[in-house]
Amino acid sequence: MSEILKVISLTKHFKSSVGIVHAVDDISFSIEEGKTIGLVGESGSGKSTTGHMIAGIYPPTRGKIIFDGVDISVDANKRPLSVKKKIGMVFQDPSTSLNPRQTIEDIISLPLKVHMRITNYAEMRKTVRELLEKVQLPPDFMNRYPRDLGGGERQLVAIARALASEPTLIILDEPTSALDVSVQAKIITTLLKLQKEMGLTYIFITHDLSLMRNVADKVAIMYLGKIYEMADTQNFFEEPLHPYTMMLISSIPTLTDEEEKIKPRGIESLGEIPSAVNPPKGCRFHTRCPFAREECKTNEPKGEKIDGGRIVFCHFWREIKYKLTTNAPEKI
């Protein structure tokens, strides 16, 4: 398996009226072709900003994005057409990401015109029809407008549009969170099916950690612009190492007693997320971490690599793990 995307020390700072927003600060990760990386975190953790930089909505403040061996650390209009062809994006809310004044056919045919050089009208319609079939929508949808479709159907149209240029990487920014629960599963299964068929690589952004269990090969946990833990999905749920990860996992509602049993204990959601304008010094999570000590307030944790590509950013993860597994009292 080859690495298709690699981001190195990616950073994005926004200027705002209240100061500099540290939306994303020095994060690095990579994805192998055909795999899915999940970017997970609470609101404001910089997930979308990361996705937007990779998609090319805006360039990074610092750091590099390497795609297929090519440096693409600029915004989309400075990237070669061949790169734009290979990277697709699906936005959170299909009611704003599809032009309300265009038919589904217009919407899906744009990437065909730009990248596939289809100029023959009959061929265009045929291709649009095939794309609709691919996402399991009836072909006669192409004459309709987005407002005539349900939320889930609209998102499938957005997915069909993203597929039209035959990309290798698709950025999915919370593709189900704006939709009814009833259609979320359908979107996810369609995405998984397409991935298998076409060998797609996904960057799957979500605040719903439980979703990642079935979708992602690798999960990166973000908090206030930083990645605090990254691991293969399997390990991740079995043995979360970072206290923030434990907090996220323990807030997932459980359905069975069995699930309840394996849930990490002793970590409750604590306090509010601080502002990204003045992120806490040291470990940004220390204001909410039940295990925080003096060192956490001053020193930024370095990433510690553990077997199997796993990486955790916490000064005391070993001790915390020991305490928790031996069921010691909560304070350390």
Binding site: A55, I57, A76, L81, K84
Partner: peptide, 13 residues
């Protein structure tokens, strides 16, 4: 600033 304009830009229109 609507996402559909962003989407068209990203596609390369």
């Amino acid at each position: 600033n609507e996402p559909f304009v962003k989407a068209a830009q990203l596609i390369g229109a």
